[in-house]
C-alpha cells in the first residue's frame, strides 16, 4: 500500500532533515502505529503520503503510484483513495453532522441518491445513527472525532491516515475511537496512525514503527509504545 525507499525530506536549505533515508513498507490491510517524540518526522511521513510535500530524495509509492512523479492534476485522484483524520477534527461548524459527511461526497460529484444512502450507512457504522441533524458544537469530542472518521471513510478509501486522532480525547473515549478504527481496519482498509498515546499502542498490540530524528529506529509486529519514553 505504501512503500518508502530511502526517502529524505529537508525543509529549507541547511536544516536537519525531517526524514532521513526512511525505507518502509506498509501492506494492504495493515494497521501501523507511527510513534516517536514531537519533531521525529511522523507528520512529515503522513504529508509525503498525501503529496502535501515532495520528498527531497528517494521514492514514495502509494497504492501503486509513484507519488513523487505524480502530475499535480492527478493528486486529487490519489487523495480520493486516502481518508485523513486529525487531532482537531476539522469539522465545518455551520454544517450538520450529515452535511459534514456528505460534503466529502458532494465535492467529488457523487449523485444525490448515493449520498442519501452512504452517509447514513457510514454514520451508523461509526455509531452516530440518529445524530444526523446535530451541529458539531452540540457533540462531545469523541462524537466529533467519529464524524471526522465518517467523513474520511464515507468514500471507502483503501488507506486511512490518522494524525493523533485521540490527542484531544480522554482515555475512555479514546478506547472507543480505537475500537472504531480497528473495525474499519477489519473491512480491509489500511490504517496508519501517528500517536503519542502509549496506553493505546500497548493495548492494541499492532505493528509499531518508531521514528527518532527522522530515522526509523524500531519496526516490530505486535509491538508496544516502547521503553524510549
Amino acid at each position: 500500500m505504501i512503500t518508502f525507499e530511502h526517502v529524505s525530506k529537508v525543509y529549507g536549505e541547511g536544516n536537519r532533515p525531517a526524514l532521513a533515508e526512511v525505507t518502509l513498507q506498509v501492506d494492504r490491510g495493515d494497521f501501523v502505529f507511527l510513534v516517536g517524540p514531537s519533531g521525529s518526522g511522523k507528520s512529515t511521513f503522513l504529508r509525503l503520503v498525501l503529496k502535501e510535500e515532495k520528498a527531497s530524495s528517494g521514492t514514495v509509492q502509494v497504492a501503486g503510484r509513484d507519488v513523487g512523479r505524480l502530475r499535480s492534476w492527478k493528486v486529487p485522484a490519489l487523495r480520493r483513495q486516502i481518508g485523513v483524520v486529525f487531532q482537531d477534527f476539522r469539522l465545518l461548524a455551520d454544517k450538520s453532522v450529515f452535511e459534514n459527511v456528505a460534503f466529502a461526497l458532494q465535492v467529488l460529484g457523487k449523485p444525490r441518491h448515493v449520498i442519501a444512502q452512504s452517509v447514513p450507512e457510514t454514520l451508523a457504522l461509526v455509531g452516530l445513527g440518529g445524530k444526523e441533524r446535530r451541529r458539531p458544537h452540540e457533540l462531545s469530542g469523541g462524537e466529533q472525532q467519529r464524524v471526522a472518521i465518517a467523513r474520511a471513510f464515507v468514500n471507502r478509501p483503501a488507506l486511512l491516515l490518522a494524525d493523533e486522532p485521540t490527542g484531544n480525547l480522554d482515555p475512555e473515549t479514546s478506547v472507543g475511537i480505537m475500537k472504531l478504527l480497528d473495525r474499519i481496519n477489519r473491512t480491509g482498509t489500511t490504517i496508519v496512525m501517528a500517536t503519542h498515546d502509549d496506553d493505546i499502542v500497548d493495548q492494541m498490540r499492532k505493528r509499531v514503527v518508531e521514528l527518532r530524528d527522522g530515522r526509523v529506529v524500531r519496526d516490530e509486529d505486535r509491538g508496544v509504545y516502547g521503553s524510549s519514553r
Binding site: P76, L78, R79, R80, L92, F103, V107, L108, R151
Partner: peptide, 8 residues
C-alpha cells in the same frame, strides 16, 4: 477539507 478528500 476539499483538498484532502480529493476535490479537483
Amino acid at each position: 477539507i476539499m483538498r484532502l478528500v480529493g476535490a479537483s
